[in-house]
Design a protein around this nucleic acid. Structure first.
Length: 848
DNA sequence: TGACACATGATTTTT
DNA sequence: TCATGTGTCA
């Protein structure tokens, strides 16, 4: 669907002329023509059908191609019918891509691949078949994060828990984490369960699950967790699926979490396997964890679950499961992915064949060398050596900018230059670590008139108007859906405020009935003021009418009627804000998208799982996105700004996950560089505004980890000389870097001066310095800053008196927050909240 | 109910 | 800095 993927396809086939027109040839001959374009390893991965296979597929080595060809191979050798192949991906996009390619390869409909989809959609589907066995009915609602949090808020309020101190978000995060680890309420380690709400976390989790049942709802985590429960409690059901699936294929295996792992494990058992396995796996989880407190514990226990689960050897040989992944691209550890799953694959699935795909068909030599050298700094990896037969190409460039604004300006100029040379903007991407970095580029591109598109951001179905519209439809479809009812009962405003809703809640709770039912009753009493009462009557009558119409009208028509008669469309038509028109457009798009589904029920079942962000227009534009969302994509030219300590690697990753965090950041860097086919351009800014204050930063350690033979230090801008690789020993980042940052230059001095001069108006001060740097930028190499220990010199000479006082609250780029405990001239001793006591020059910290 | 002051916290994100 | 959420008042 997106351009980059099409290109991926083209590129691959283009590289190997023999492979041209796979689809055509596959159609033409029954002979396995589809195999001929593969290299030996790929072919091995496709043809090894029996037993467990792990395909370690480095970036750009043709992973999707192997997966799809393998399916084609299974089908064309009659080893299984389409409905006997379970093929899971993480995203809808990946699933679609596979379907598309399979279609091309096999020449006809892939409708016959009913079990190709995301973990969640397949889990959801299985759950709908057996809903009663997990206390749901088959039309259950899938709650998204928003519903989830609203529900938790209600539970917290009911329990009189201060949601200031114990935010619902936090609880949602905890519950998600538990579900990711396959833990039902009774399995959550006691210590962790107690860590929320004065020991009530576990109870709240249990209550939440109960509420979900009464609402006939499941959250995303449940789609898997309830599936696991289903399989464990009903071995006959499990056996049914074990029998059905002759082959299992898993994409992006490095991203699987414990729940997904357990799910796969259950399904990959040979059908006759005794059911003792799941039970023993479960037991070992809580027992290891008792007493380990706090957030760390949750992390550690996550790590423990894998091994303890793995320790139980399967009692029968696992069947034909093929997992494809790349441990070097595991970047979702923070949301529960277990790299361990891939690292321990051959342990989990004894006799597994491990196949490495190391021939890269994407990037040039320099780019690949740089990425490989960087990732080699990680310890916990299976190890692969990517090779290319491509030319060396252009070196990876590293450029220093004075500040983030100049960084954006420099990148903007480079893009314009590429554009002048005839490069397509679609082939250019800017990949940032954190989304706040995007703004600078957007601002710049707007002034330049350069077309760009931001990828990511709020998803289509997360938009308020879409969620409102869906809520109406949900109530029609399932009147017990209290969350949906509550969401729209007063949207548009009908004078049904908190008081009315509260009354309905009371009623509903007393009689154990849904809110909608309660509303129906309340309008026949005089408990409400006449105004509210007639208003509520209107709502109830509307819904009753729509519920009748539901069976008589096509669902798209019904949707239009509902939006119209509820006054919802009108509400936005009257709205004068700038985005109202867009919202109306989105509503139309929603109705349009309903056409693809059979009926309302079918639409609602899939909407939360399948609805994607709007497909980007085909116009030529630069892509701006985070590194995370760039995984799986590729571009001719990739700009990677913000390679600074604290931002990349991100400080929080280091603080919270230590070494593991650093390694994940490094993998992210590796992912970033390997997105590039021909040009990878790295940037760092010496000054960056974080939370409103300007901070002097030091270049990312990752820059030092690049091989100098493949990297070119381009002329630095604005005097912030990045004087080459020399002089940066490993000790550079050790502790006292505050006194000796090599990147402290005349530019830095100016910044310090500006800062102390204008305490409040940092903006005015900055534009002065900015003008200067702009000038020296365009004139290029006018001066080379002595890059030695300038920082120290400057810092020590900044006058004797510090304008800090004892106990001042301060922020330091590297050490975080703390307070001043001792002052010695301009040297401060600071007790940092996290990093402990350090001596720091005053100019390195900001008062907060 | 809506308008406004005030506090707060601020990676990454799919389903 | 700045966006978001909450609390207060008319």
């Amino acid at each position: 669907m997106t351009e980059p993927n099409k290109r991926a396809n083209l590129d691959l086939t283009g590289y190997q002329p023999a492979a041209g027109g796979i689809a055509a040839r596959a159609r033409a001959a029954a002979a396995p023509a589809y195999l001929s374009g593969l290299n030996p390893e790929q072919r091995d991965a496709v043809e090894t059908l029996d037993g467990p296979v792990l395909v370690l597929a480095g970036a750009g080595t043709g992973k999707t191609r192997v997966l799809t060809t393998r399916i084609a191979h299974i089908l064309s050798t009659d080893r299984a019918r389409p409905a006997e192949i379970l093929s899971v991906t993480f995203t809808n996009k990946a699933a679609r891509e596979m379907k598309l390619r399979l279609g091309q390869m096999l020449g006809q409909a892939v409708e016959g691949m009913p079990w190709l989809g995301t973990f969640h959609s397949i889990g959801g589907r299985i759950l709908r078949y057996h809903a009663e066995l997990v206390q749901l009915t088959s039309n259950f609602t899938v709650l998204d994060t928003d519903d989830q949090i609203r529900l938790l808020k209600q539970l917290l309020a009911a329990d009189n828990i201060d949601d200031k101190r114990w935010p619902a978000r936090m609880l949602a995060g905890l519950i998600d984490g538990w579900k990711n680890r396959g833990l039902t309420p009774s399995q959550v380690p006691a210590g962790e369960a107690a860590s929320f709400g004065n020991g009530r976390g576990g109870k709240l989790y249990a209550q939440y699950q109960e509420r979900l049942k009464t609402l006939n709802a499941a959250d995303f985590g449940d789609l898997l967790l309830e599936n696991i429960r289903l399989f464990r409690e009903h071995p006959d059901v499990l056996r049914q699926y074990q029998n059905r699936f002759k082959f299992i294929l898993v994409d992006e295996y490095q991203d699987t979490n414990v729940a997904q792992y357990l799910w796969l494990r259950l399904l990959s058992q040979t059908p006759s396997a005794p059911s003792s396995l799941p039970g023993s796996t479960r037991q070992s989880i809580p027992s290891q964890e008792d007493g380990s407190p706090g957030l760390d514990a949750s992390r550690r226990s996550g790590d423990d679950v894998g091994p303890s689960g793995n320790a139980v050897a399967p009692s029968a040989p696992p069947k034909n499961i093929c997992c494809v992944g790349d441990d070097d691209q595991s970047i979702y550890g923070w949301r529960g992915a277990e790299v361990d799953n891939i690292l321990r694959f051959d342990h989990d699935f004894p006799g597994a064949k491990v196949i490495r795909l190391e021939r890269n068909y994407r990037s040039t030599g320099h780019i690949l060398a740089a990425a490989s050298h960087l990732i080699a700094h990680n310890e916990g990896r299976l190890g692969k050596t990517l090779r290319t037969e491509d030319v060396d190409g252009e070196m990876v460039t590293v450029t220093g900018a004075w500040d983030s604004e100049e960084e954006a300006r420099a990148i903007g100029e480079e893009i314009e230059q590429l554009q002048r040379q005839g490069h397509k903007l679609n082939e250019i991407a800017i990949l940032v670590r954190a989304s706040f970095q995007m703004r600078e580029f957007e601002d710049r591109f707007v002034t330049l008139g350069l077309p760009y598109r931001v990828i990511g951001g709020p998803r289509f179905y997360e938009r308020a108007e879409i969620r409102d519209a869906l809520a109406y439809l949900r109530v029609i479809n399932s009147p017990a859906d209290d969350l949906a009812f509550e969401r729209i009962v007063n949207v548009p405003k009908r004078g049904l405020g908190d008081a009315t809703v509260q009354l309905l809640h009371d009623h509903a709770r007393k009689r154990k009935m849904p809110l909608f039912e309660a509303a129906r009753m309340v309008i026949d009493t005089d408990e409400l003021k006449p105004k509210a009462r007639s208003s509520l009557r209107g709502v109830v009558e509307n819904f009753e009418r729509w519920q009748v119409q539901r069976d008589a009208l096509p669902h798209t028509e019904l949707a239009e009627i509902v939006l119209d008669e509820s006054g919802y469309t009108e509400m936005w038509q009257k709205d004068r804000s700038a985005d109202a028109a867009g919202r109306l457009e989105n509503l139309k798009e929603l109705v349009r998208s309903m056409e693809e589904f059979e009926n309302l029920q079918g639409f609602l079942e899939h909407i939360s799982l399948v609805m994607d962000r709007e497909g980007g227009a085909d116009e030529d534009a630069v892509s701006v996105m985070t590194l995370h969302s760039a995984k799986g994509l590729e571009f001719e030219t990739v700009f990677l700004p913000g390679w600074e300590e604290g931002l990349f690697p991100h400080q929080r990753a280091l603080d919270e996950q230590g070494r593991a965090g650093l390694e994940e950041e490094r993998r992210l860097a590796h992912v970033g560089i390997t997105r590039a086919r021909r040009r990878a351009k790295l940037y760092f800014a010496t000054n960056r505004r974080i939370h409103g204050t300007w901070n002097t930063t030091i270049p990312s350690r990752f820059l030092d980890e690049l091989p100098s033979a493949n990297v070119e230090i381009t002329e630095s801008k604005g005097g912030s000389g990045w004087g080459g690789m020399s002089g940066y020993g490993p000790s550079r980042f050790d502790n006292v870097e505050s006194f000796g940052s090599s990147y402290s230059t005349p530019g830095w001095q100016r910044a310090q001066a500006q800062r102390s001069r204008s305490s409040g108006g940092s903006n005015g001060g900055r534009s002065g310095g900015f003008g200067e740097s702009g000038a020296s930028y365009s004139s290029g190499s006018n001066r080379r800053a002595p890059f030695t220990i300038e920082g120290e010199l400057v810092a020590k000479s900044t006058g004797a008196d510090s304008d800090f006082t004892l106990n001042d609250r301060v922020f330091h780029q590297k050490f975080g927050y703390g307070h001043v405990t001792k002052i010695d001239g301009n040297k401060l001793t600071i007790a940092f909240d996290k990093a402990g006591e350090k001596k720091v020059v005053d100019s390195f910290v900001d008062r907060v």
